[in-house]
Computed example of a mutant assay.
Amino acid sequence: MKWSGLRARGFDKPVIFITGFAEEGSEERAMAAGAACFLKKPFQDTDIIRCIEQALQVRQGESAP
């Protein structure tokens, strides 16, 4: 199911998109679809912490840094 379909059904949880196989344009599509953050593997532990913080800020209606 596409993210837009999830939103149409009332799903409003923040999404952190994580992939090991990023294709060109995938980050832009994920962010345009509403992802709070996009990570490509491998990533650092500080990257996932930053993304979780961003997702929580977006959830609370704050702007992401």
Score class of each variant (00 low, 15 high):
M1G: 14
K2Y: 08
K2I: 09
K2A: 11
K2R: 13
W3D: 04
S4K: 13
S4W: 11
G5Y: 10
G5A: 09
G5L: 13
L6H: 09
L6P: 04
R7L: 01
R7T: 08
R7W: 04
R7Y: 02
A8H: 02
A8K: 04
A8R: 05
A8Y: 01
R9S: 03
G10P: 06
F11Q: 04
F11A: 10
D12Q: 00
D12R: 06
P14H: 07
P14L: 10
P14K: 11
P14Q: 10
P14D: 08
V15Q: 04
I16F: 02
I16R: 06
F17Q: 03
F17H: 11
F17Y: 11
F17L: 07
F17G: 02
F17K: 02
I18R: 09
I18G: 03
T19C: 05
T19G: 07
G20N: 10
G20D: 02
G20E: 06
F21Q: 00
F21H: 03
F21A: 06
F21L: 05
F21I: 03
A22H: 06
A22F: 03
A22C: 06
E23R: 14
E23S: 12
E23V: 12
E24A: 14
E24W: 03
G25C: 00
E27A: 06
E27G: 01
E28F: 00
E28T: 10
E28Q: 09
E28S: 12
R29S: 14
R29H: 12
R29E: 13
A30T: 03
M31S: 07
A32K: 11
A33Q: 14
A33M: 09
G34I: 03
A35K: 08
A35Q: 09
A35W: 05
A36T: 04
A36Y: 00
C37Y: 13
C37E: 09
C37K: 04
C37R: 06
L39K: 04
L39F: 02
L39H: 02
K40I: 15
K41T: 01
P42W: 04
P42K: 04
F43Q: 10
F43C: 04
Q44E: 14
Q44W: 11
D45R: 15
D45S: 14
T46N: 12
T46C: 07
T46A: 14
D47K: 00
I48H: 01
I48Y: 04
I48D: 05
I49N: 15
I49T: 15
I49E: 15
I49G: 15
R50G: 03
R50P: 00
R50T: 09
C51M: 07
I52V: 14
I52A: 10
I52F: 04
E53I: 09
E53R: 13
E53T: 08
Q54A: 11
Q54K: 13
Q54E: 08
Q54S: 07
Q54H: 12
A55N: 10
A55S: 10
A55V: 07
A55Q: 08
A55E: 01
L56S: 06
L56E: 13
L56C: 02
Q57L: 12
Q57H: 08
Q57T: 12
V58D: 11
R59G: 00
Q60S: 06
E62A: 05
E62I: 02
S63L: 13
S63K: 07
A64T: 05
A64M: 06
A64I: 10
P65H: 09
P65D: 15
P65Q: 12
P65K: 14
P65W: 11
P65A: 13
P65F: 09
P65S: 15
